[in-house]
Simulated scan of single mutants.
Amino acid sequence: MAYFDGVYVALITPFDENQEVDYQRLQTFCKWLIDQGVDGLIPGGSLGEYATLEETERVKVVETVIEAAAGRVPVMVGTGAPSTRQVTKWARHAKDAGAAGLMALPPINYNPMKHEILAHYEALSDVGLPVIAYNNPHDYPTDLTPDLLKEIGQFENIVGVKEFSGDVRRVHDILEKTNLEVMIGVDDLAFEGALSGATGWISGVPNALPVEGCELFHYGRKGEIDKGLALYRKLLPLFHYDANPQLVQSIKYMAKLAGQDCGPTRPPRLPLPDDYYASIKADFHYAKGTAISQ
């Protein structure tokens, strides 16, 4: 039995027109996602623009999401920060606030040696919450390979990995070599990942299309290939934006198209060119099977 099975949404953070965090909107948005059937929520990730938040804002975002979830779904909190000391501080805050688990990058500021990576995850394990290690070798210097994950997984509370390498073969290698659960971390491998044995999906586009995202992943878990492929091919053009550096602006715009406007992004992320938004809009309507309104 996986600790965190199903579709966990890596939350966008709502801002108002003055780029202040809109906590009321965040609470409403979380409740909407839960009502639409998502299995869990994750504040504090890169999609939530955690690096742009003041410390007091980050505290309140986590506490707002946990309050909004009200025990209906688990909340896993992102702990990204420059130092292990800061990471474990955020982990302890998450635990005290009532989080069910942690999503934790390896050291992010330079290319660490193996013993430093292991010490980092040992410190996280010692906090006492289940930890999903986050492998993203595209944006950070460390690749959590299956062999390295085998060593990391020996710490008591390291229970899984968010696999964002983009190579679905990693799912098989991790499941073969470790005792960790695998959560797919890149949207455009959600279906293949589920078919390959991933028990969870830390998702981006389901901020805007939670029902479709949950249906797709559950088709994959059940091996319902024909139904899954038909839906997957409609969603795939949108999923590609999740693996793009402009994923935050893109997914916030998708949420707006879905009637869940969460406001602008904070600089350095700025609005995208009009033709970029036009492409997202066309792909969104293709996924929904609707005509584009002028």
Rank of each mutant, 00 (worst) to 15 (best):
L105M: 12
K150V: 13
A51P: 03
A94S: 12
V161H: 02
V127S: 03
Y50W: 10
R170Q: 10
A97S: 13
P146V: 09
L102F: 07
E55Y: 11
K114Q: 14
E122W: 07
L175S: 07
H93T: 12
S125D: 05
D173S: 14
G160K: 05
N136D: 10
T145K: 11
G71P: 10
A51M: 13
A123H: 08
F155T: 11
G160E: 00
V65D: 00
L105S: 01
E49Y: 04
L144C: 10
V131S: 07
G71Y: 03
A99N: 05
L129N: 04
A94Q: 05
D139F: 11
K162I: 11
V159A: 06
D96W: 11
V61F: 01
G80P: 06
E57L: 09
S165I: 12
H93E: 08
L129G: 06
F164P: 06
V87L: 07
A97R: 08
N157Q: 14
H172P: 02
R85T: 14
E67C: 08
G48L: 05
E55W: 11
T145F: 09
T145W: 06
V161K: 02
V77Q: 02
S83D: 03
N135V: 10
E116Y: 03
M76V: 15
A51E: 01
T145H: 08
G128W: 04
E156H: 12
L102A: 06
G71W: 04
L53C: 05
L118N: 07
K89M: 14
L124A: 06
Y121I: 07
V168I: 15
K95P: 07
E176C: 14
I132G: 00
T142I: 08
S165R: 09
H172Y: 10
K114C: 09
D167N: 15
P82W: 01
